[in-house]
Structure formats: structure tokens, C-alpha cells
Amino acid sequence: MLKLLLALSIGAFFVSPLQAGEIQPVIKACQPGAKHCERWTAEFPTALQLALKGNHAAQQTVAFCLSSGCHDAVVIDRVASCSWHLVIANSGASTVLDASNLRNTCRPMTSAQKDEARANARELVRKIYNRDPAATDQM
């Protein structure tokens, strides 16, 4: 029994953490009759799939929902939202509004949160565009 407990305690140090870029947005349950929430609950998973395929408008939707909650349909995750804004900045289709959204979302975060967002974005850019992100991130 002691060997088992020792093995389990040592094994806890070797459990791999969630990989950067594996942002798992959480869809919330809507209140009855909350039509806007129900709409976003239905549409967000599709937007996320399209965003992961490089669709610029879908990436904007995902970033927006992660920062606003989209009528309480998605759990707000500012780090994930910032990550998606960094992906958009690296998409080649970024607009002035996208740059403004990136600054407004990412600048208020702590250094640790920004580092996490950069790491997530780096993995997402590699996954989506099969390349490294640009050196500057406009934060």
C-alpha cells in the first residue's frame, strides 16, 4: 500500500498540464425564455469550429463572446479572448478595429495573464496557420 501511495504521489508531478492553445470555452445554460442567450449557445460552437479553420469573422465572434459572454451564453474568459485577438492580429486579415479590440482586451491584464495569452495564441497560430506568430503582439 505504501508503494502505491508513493507511486501516486510521484506520478502527480509528471501529469502534463493543459497544453497552451487548448482553450476550451464553456457554454452556459440559459435562463428559460432568454432568446439571445439560446441563439448564442447554439451558434458559438459553430463559430469556434470555423475560427479554428481560419475564418476571420468567426475568430472575431469567438474573441467577442469570450470577453462579453454573448448574452450570458459563454463563460467570460479574458485570457482566452486576448489569445484570440492575438490570433486575429496574426491572421493577415486584421483591421484597425481588430487592433483596437486587442488593446482594449489585453492591456488591462496582468503580466502573467498576458504571458498565458501569448502562449495560447502561439499554439493557436501554429495550429491554424501552420507558422509561428509575428514577433510583436501590440499589447
Rank of each mutant, 00 (worst) to 15 (best):
E22P: 08
P32Y: 10
A58V: 07
Q60Y: 01
A42E: 14
S68F: 00
N55S: 11
S81T: 02
D77E: 07
F64P: 00
V26H: 08
S16K: 13
C70P: 04
S83Q: 02
C65N: 03
F14V: 12
K53W: 10
A80I: 00
C37A: 09
E38A: 11
P17I: 09
A51E: 01
E22Q: 13
P32K: 10
S68P: 05
H36E: 15
K53Y: 10
C82Q: 02
K28F: 04
L86G: 07
Q19R: 15
L48S: 13
E38K: 03
K35V: 14
Q31I: 11
R39S: 13
G33T: 07
H71T: 05
A63G: 05
C37Y: 05
L66R: 00
G11N: 04
K53A: 14
A63I: 06
P32E: 15
A80F: 01
P17Q: 13
G54I: 03
L50Y: 10
A20V: 06
V26M: 11
F44N: 02
P25V: 04
S67N: 08
A51F: 05
V74Y: 04
E38Q: 12
P25Q: 07
A58F: 05
S83D: 00
G69T: 03
L66D: 04
D77N: 08
I23Q: 04
A58L: 06
S81C: 03
Q24H: 13
A58W: 03
P25F: 01
Q24L: 15
T61W: 04
A20M: 06
A73I: 02
A42F: 13
P32G: 14
K53D: 15
T61D: 14
A58R: 03
A34H: 09
P17K: 08
A29W: 07
E22L: 12
V75F: 01
Q49A: 15
K53P: 11
W84T: 05
K28Q: 13
A58H: 01
H71E: 15
L50S: 13
Q24K: 15
V79M: 03
Q60P: 03
Q60N: 11
W40I: 05
A20H: 00
V26K: 08
S16C: 13
S81A: 14
Q60H: 02
S67R: 03
V74A: 09
